[in-house]
Simulated assay, not measured.
Amino acid sequence: MSHPNPAPQPPAPIPAVHVNALNSAETEEAVESAGVSKTKQSKSVTFILAMFAGVFIGFGALFYLIVTCDPAMTWGPKRFVGGLAFCMGLVLVLCCGAELFTGNSLMASNLAARRISLPALVRNWVIVWFGNLAGALLLVALIAGAGTMGLNDGLVGDAAVATAVSKVTLAPGTLFVRGVLCNILVCLAVRIGFAARSVADKVLGVLLPISGFVAMGFEHCVANMFFIPVGLAAKAMGYGAGVDGVASLSVQGALYNIGVATLGNIVGGAVVVALAYWYVNNHKPSRRPRG
């Protein structure tokens, strides 16, 4: 007995491909959803991901030192090229997955939206801050053992010392404001990363904000968790002896810089960017009649 041919099946729908970046409201939702997920991670996972971020930002900082130690480069191009090199750190954080303290300042919008509690926010920030520090210090130890400070006839080591000295000798007010300005740009770059549809979008989107904050000399607490300790290590190895103010480079100076920069970064990221965008995207226009 013959069977009739089965009826043809309609073709499977072709999934829509979205190429436009998320708008501001959609980006805010993506930021807040990610913030909720961060509070649900185990402490060990959060700490390991934070260590990754400390290492990644440290790689970007080391890249900066290597490309800016050439004395033949003039000041402007050196700052620009160094800023582009430093971008590698945030590209790795956004594309590979890691927990960065400065970027997690955006979680303040979750708190404002009552999607997370204050203890959950503080717990995440504390774990991530110390995880970033542990990752940065681990990379410093590895770099010291790798002999990287001796590259270019020791100019990399000299640059490490000079960069660290320039950071620990900043006045408190200047350091704080530079921390605020830094994390405004960093958190805007992170928002671009959330708005992006592809890896290429993420990479291109972060280049200008991150290279800009580096070129402008702003202060990033996680980057300084690498810059200053590696400067201390280079000083201990005999580099940078001729750098003006090298005597001020100490553990106390490192704690001072990182502490004040952290406070500035919190204000810049949590208040200026996170809370402002939360308000903008949740503000309801007044219904009162004009007259």
Rank of each mutant, 00 (worst) to 15 (best):
A72D: 12
Y279N: 12
A159T: 10
F52W: 07
G245Q: 10
S37W: 09
P285F: 01
P209W: 03
A234T: 08
G217Y: 04
A85Q: 06
A236V: 09
I14A: 15
L22C: 02
K43P: 03
L139G: 04
A223E: 06
G242E: 14
A12F: 10
V161P: 00
L263Q: 06
L181H: 07
Y239I: 05
Y239W: 02
N132E: 04
M216E: 04
A134I: 11
V31K: 09
E99W: 02
V190D: 09
S286M: 09
V214C: 06
S286V: 01
L121M: 15
M1D: 13
M216F: 15
A195V: 06
G217L: 05
P229R: 00
F86H: 01
G154T: 03
F63V: 09
C87S: 15
G131V: 07
A215W: 10
A162N: 14
A136G: 14
M88K: 00
E32C: 10
A72H: 13
P289T: 07
V180Y: 04
E26W: 00
M107Y: 01
K284D: 12
A50T: 05
N20C: 05
P119W: 02
T39L: 00
L249S: 00
S2T: 15
E32A: 08
F194D: 01
R123T: 15
F227K: 01
V55T: 10
I116R: 04
A171G: 14
V272Y: 00
D70W: 11
R114D: 10
G205A: 10
A189M: 04
G97E: 11
F47L: 15
Y256I: 12
L22E: 12
L207W: 01
G231M: 01
N224D: 14
G103Y: 04
T174P: 01
V122C: 12
S248G: 01
P71K: 12
L170Q: 15
V272R: 03
E32W: 02
L100C: 08
Y277W: 13
L121C: 05
M216T: 11
S105T: 15
I57C: 04
V206H: 03
A159H: 08
L62M: 15
A25S: 15
P209A: 11
M107K: 04
Y279I: 03
I143N: 00
I192G: 15
G253K: 03
E28Y: 04
L263D: 07
G157L: 05
E28L: 08
G245V: 01
A146T: 02
D201S: 15
A72I: 11
F213N: 06
N152R: 13
F218C: 04
S117V: 12
G240Y: 05
A85S: 05
T74E: 12
V165W: 00
G150D: 13
L255D: 11
I228R: 06
T74G: 10
D153I: 00
F52S: 11
R123N: 14
A276M: 14
G58C: 05
G253Y: 02
I116Y: 03
D244F: 02
A50V: 04
Y256E: 13
S211T: 09
M73K: 09
F226Q: 07
N132G: 03
